[in-house]
Design a binder for these strands. Structure first.
Lengths: 352, 352
DNA sequence: TTTTTTTACGCAATCGATTTCGAATATCGG
DNA sequence: CCGATATTCGAAATCGATTGCGTAAAAAAA
């Protein structure tokens, strides 16, 4: 069952020397004669010795592993983030331990504590939608556990953060919709407690303002579960399309919402972009295959992951406590396709 | 930097008892009087004691973590598999350490050795496309490291395996294409060294045979990089559509190939399903949004991941070496949509 | 040759937790 | 009241590797 690991002791015994000698020889210490080193190295190889990282971790109080907590792995954006994290961590000799919160506050707490108790050297966190209280993370942060937030961040904890410029994302997308002729742009956003949601809705608002369009409260909707509950989206779309004045464009703030809204529109027979334009955040790898091809705001997910692990390892390997923190803000990319494009708009009232 | 962990020693000192007593009290040993237990438990909580899993691992020679090696995390299928693995592992108190091979043999070797050296209790592996030699895994298997293969398996290592019934997947899909009127069905498959590819192509062949259609070698193509190199797909599509007798349907054997082929067809202005029908393996979460809605063979990815971790933990926790191995074969689901549907087919020769 | 300095290595502590063995105290029967 | 069994706890070994300290032997300096 448990495979017989060759230890430093076995090598020592085989050679009739002490474990200290073996250890030092393996680490190429100057206190060991070249001949002995030779012998030890040869013997270690012959016996197929592999160092036990757990013993080392115990001594060094470092595990050379980092924990990653994301809402969900099976999500285009987050899986790309993880890709970025893993690639760089692997190159630097770090393990990546994954845990999902599934948007649940309770599960996030358990995940965090689980990872912390497993002595990860640091944590990369993207907050769950439900999470309003940050004590579970603050506690660890106060005890000195290096921590980097990604995408869904918080102001309550002072540490490195990696985000995309969400404000600009929705600002540009909104402006683009306006230039394409939209006058009544609805927003379907995720939980309003998320940092990303707040920034994105703010970008939308600012763009309306800058273009002299008055904000309409009935056009702004939040999905608490961000589309995991499909019914949530349907209800909102229903509301929007039973308004006296229907929206002529919809802006969505997350991957699930973007595709979810499109699904709902299709089911209801609402044509995009003829009846309503659509644009939103998404990191799907097949935007051009979707009908209609989707205009979307894409986040540089891989790069964000890479930035996060980079910042984290900087902290982990820093001699003294890091006091200056960075908020690394990458640029989103607005990809314009048909779903948002200008088109013949029926005269008001000419259509049901 | 490293946060001051409270150890069992601190608790012992605070109470003026020995570490053994604390340890036993914490584990609710019968050798400790109820009063002492009470005291220790209270003190441990007060001091915010958390056990150090590394010390435990060292002693128990178990890390309560499992390694997962997949070709790529940012892939619909594999991220769903990981979701299944993580969910169940988390419930059972196991860490999941992720590593990607990126289809590279060399990186797979390094990943495997990295994970093994980190003392994972077991491994879940989906082989890289490049991997032809299995020595790196055989070595560990021989030394007794529990191991489960998922999706892309091998016959060379005798252990638990979890797959989808690929043969039936393509058999049914092919038959469906035939019933929809297809007569010349091309196959675009991944690397032929992959177990999945072989089974899938076999299913296709068998279906042709069963329906009295002669197999045409020029209609069968393999992509070594399985669509990671987009040019690979384009070249194959090119070849197929410069044949004197063009295919009237295409069957693809992987997620990337299915979407990749559709992209290529769109770029070349070949209409699906009017000019050519399309069906293939895919685990995309938005098949109905794609134009045209895709007929696809879906794998129960989450369930496969759950089955794999279940089998793995069975081995890990088994008292004696497991000798009987299981090949768990889940059923794929054929989801029929427009991309493969019967339609007006032009008379032979009436079209360019 | 004697003293000093290197060189090369072993002993033992350490990391945190568990566990075997032994011992001290308490309890009980006679 | 004494020997015997129970109860409760501590000392020390253990897991694998590292490292400060001590020391014997060899080399260099005197």
């Amino acid at each position: 069952m448990k495979y017989n690991a060759v230890t430093i002791k076995d090598v020592a015994k085989a050679l009739g020397v002490s474990t200290s000698t073996v250890s030092r020889a393996l680490r190429d210490s100057h206190e060991i004669s070249p001949e002995t080193k030779e012998l030890v190295l040869e013997c270690a190889k012959r016996l197929n010795y592999t160092p036990n990282p757990i013993a080392l971790s115990l001594k060094e109080k470092k595990s050379r592993s980092v924990g990653v907590i994301v809402p969900e792995v099976a999500n285009g954006f987050f899986s790309q983030v993880i890709n970025g994290i893993e690639s760089m961590a692997f190159d630097k000799g770090y393990d990546v331990i994954i845990s999902q919160s599934l948007e649940s506050y309770e599960r996030e707490i358990r995940s965090v504590q689980f990872l912390a108790s497993r002595s990860v050297d640091g944590l990369i966190v993207s907050l769950a939608a439900e999470t309003a209280n940050l004590d579970h993370l603050l506690q660890l942060h106060d005890r000195g556990l290096p921590m980097v937030f990604i995408d869904r961040i918080t102001d309550e904890i002072n540490t490195h953060k990696v985000i995309v410029d969400s404000f600009r994302g929705t600002y540009d997308a909104t402006e683009h919709l306006i230039q394409s002729g939209a006058k009544r742009i609805a927003v379907i956003a995720a939980t309003e407690f998320l940092s990303t949601t707040r920034e994105r809705v703010a970008g939308y608002r600012e763009a309306l303002l800058a273009n002299g369009i008055k904000e309409q409260p009935e056009l702004i909707h939040y999905c608490f579960y961000g589309g995991i509950e499909f019914a949530e989206i349907e209800e909102i779309v229903n509301k929007l399309f039973t308004l006296r004045q229907k929206p002529d464009a919809i802006l969505t703030t997350s991957d699930k919402l973007t595709t979810g809204v499109l699904k709902t529109l299709k089911r209801r027979g609402i044509k995009v972009p003829q009846d309503v334009a659509l644009a939103g955040f998404s990191n799907t790898d097949i935007p051009e295959l979707i009908d209609p091809p989707l205009t979307l705001i894409r986040q540089p997910a891989r790069e964000m992951g890479a930035a996060a692990i980079d910042l984290l390892l900087q902290m982990v390997n820093s001699k003294r406590p890091v006091k200056e923190f960075e908020k690394r803000r990458l640029s989103p990319e607005l990809q314009i396709r048909e779903s948002s494009q200008a088109r013949q708009r029926p005269k008001p009232g000419s259509k049901k």
